[in-house]
Amino acid sequence: MAIITTRVQSQDFDAAAEYEALRAGTPGAGALVSFTGLCRDEGGRLSALELEHYPGMAEKALERIARAAAARFGLLGLAVVHRHGVIPAGGNIVLVIAAAGHRKAAFEAASFVMDHLKTDAPFWKKEHGAEGEGAWVEARRSDDAERDQWNDAGS
């Protein structure tokens, strides 16, 4: 049984602490892959991103995606943390840490989780710039293509 942790929160996370916790909990792991998604400053144009979420549904979506990844890649452990609220440029948005027996499963699981978070988790990003609130970030068609390459009809 994989150790699965999923959280939706406004406060920042400590990627190093999450990594050590998962590492300590998965003594059989031969590979840990950690991915952190950050708020880009877009060449100085962006001061922050505001992430809106659908409370309740967002938590369910993270858990469903995490369970699908753990089963598909035979993971020993998986941690997924996604923030909401106003996140300043350079700040943390999302954390995925996958623990597996071997590296390929850990790399692929982290990638699978991110591709599904992009398209199937109810979060929306709004840009904040020097002149205040800006536009909503539009979904990219390439995000759907990247999710669809996993051939699992969502998860």
């Binding site: 979420h53 659908y54 996604h82 948005i93 978070l117 109810p122 979060f123 909503w136 979904a139």
Partner: peptide, 10 residues
């Protein structure tokens, strides 16, 4: 029933 634009998480 929730209604929303395409999601942009991650």
């Amino acid at each position: 029933i929730g209604l929303f634009p395409p999601m942009t998480g991650g």
